[in-house]
Amino acid sequence: MEMNDVEDESRALTVVELSDELFRGAVELERTENGVVPHRLPAWVRDRGADSQLLMAEAQPAAVRLAFMTDATAVELDVLPTRFGFRGGPVRPDGVYDVDVDGEHARSFTAEGGNRVWMDLQTGEQTLESGATSTLRLDLPAGRTRVDIWLPYAETTALRQLRTDGAVDPVVDDRPSWVHYGSSISQGSNAATAAGIWPVVAARAARADVVDLGFSGAAMLDPFVARVMRDTPADLLSLKVGINIVGGDVMRRRAFAPAVHGFLDTIREGHPETPILVVSPLYCGIHEETPGPGAFDPEALAAGETRFIATGDPAERAAGRLALEDVRGILRDLVTERAAEDPNLHYLDGRELYGPEDAERFPLPDRLHPDADAHRLIGARFAELALQRFLPAS
């Protein structure tokens, strides 16, 4: 496959409707003047004045992909990305699209142009710089193929137009479905490409169809997310919770366990017997014994780098403030108690996915998020420890 600037003259390209059936992994599509914007939470959630961090994260299409069967030899996709950065701080790399052909990775590329939103770390003010639409062109081999275009996980993508020189049909996907809830690591932070985030790595390895409800900085056990999971078809549901609770310093011990119970109760209303896997936080040295809130390291920012620090006082754990060690104990005990009456509820210690020894081999580059190699490691382990165990055979 190649990305070309010159249109193939041998077969005319025609516009293909970007119908709902061509998208996988999106909870809802919003049709705007700029194109089709995939969302990972529905409008009724977005319209309730949800937190701005959550609204930004859910509109970033982690694990969302265009998937279709075609006999085309040329495909063009017009996209308008909106990227986010910190004014005067480190510049985030532009998102990377991944393309699979017949289930095999064919190539990766980045869209040029696009909008950029600059955020001021001191005031929270946001400034929009408008940019141009980018055309991505794919040349395909002759014959009927399946094409999956994975969208970047950390930038909003408006898909403006799809053009091909052949017929396009939705994919009939009989793979088992997995719905996952988590934080920035589940959304993909520090992964290299769209399909390099650990939930996609795991789903590919286990041949699962994934819906990724990982929300950067915003996995706060919001009841409306539990309702979305309740109402979404799934053969397996998983929730990896705790790091945002600690990092945001949003709950004490008294509130955390009841919030988890309520989240699980809501999911069970729509999935009375579906396996649910509760995953405790991955190893994160700065928060293992130190509560939040987490914060940007000002010395690193001054040097043009991104690193995080924990600013809480470990002595306050006795009064109910939470560090990761506390969260793991609460989750383990809670699942053990509930599993006595709910045999389809399971617990996985997140350190089995990424533990202290892994941190020595693959250090967290910003002290909070794994790098591309660690995402691959986590995904491979989750496929083995969870998906291959709890999903029905495809």
Rank of each mutant, 00 (worst) to 15 (best):
V36K: 00
G217H: 09
I245N: 09
V246K: 06
D212M: 03
A50P: 03
E112V: 03
T274H: 03
R268A: 12
D47H: 13
D71A: 13
V211R: 07
T164V: 08
D333P: 02
G49C: 13
R11G: 12
L368G: 02
E30L: 11
P61S: 10
L236K: 00
D209G: 03
E269G: 01
G103H: 05
T32R: 07
Q60F: 13
D120H: 00
R254D: 14
G88C: 06
V27Q: 09
D209V: 05
E360I: 04
S280E: 14
G285I: 04
N115Y: 01
A43N: 05
L55R: 14
Q126G: 06
D209T: 15
P81N: 04
A67Q: 08
Y283F: 15
D326N: 14
A43M: 14
R144G: 11
E155Y: 00
T82K: 03
I245A: 12
H105F: 15
R227I: 12
R351C: 12
H375W: 11
V228P: 00
G312M: 13
Y354M: 04
L239P: 12
R207K: 13
P293I: 10
E288L: 14
G294C: 03
D265Q: 13
A339Q: 08
V260P: 02
G49P: 14
A303D: 10
W118I: 04
P90V: 05
F68T: 08
P293R: 11
G242Y: 11
A132E: 15
L159T: 09
A167Y: 02
R381A: 05
D120W: 01
A50K: 14
I197L: 10
R163F: 02
R24K: 11
W150K: 12
N115Q: 04
R332E: 15
R332L: 07
M1H: 10
D169Y: 02
W118N: 05
E360Y: 06
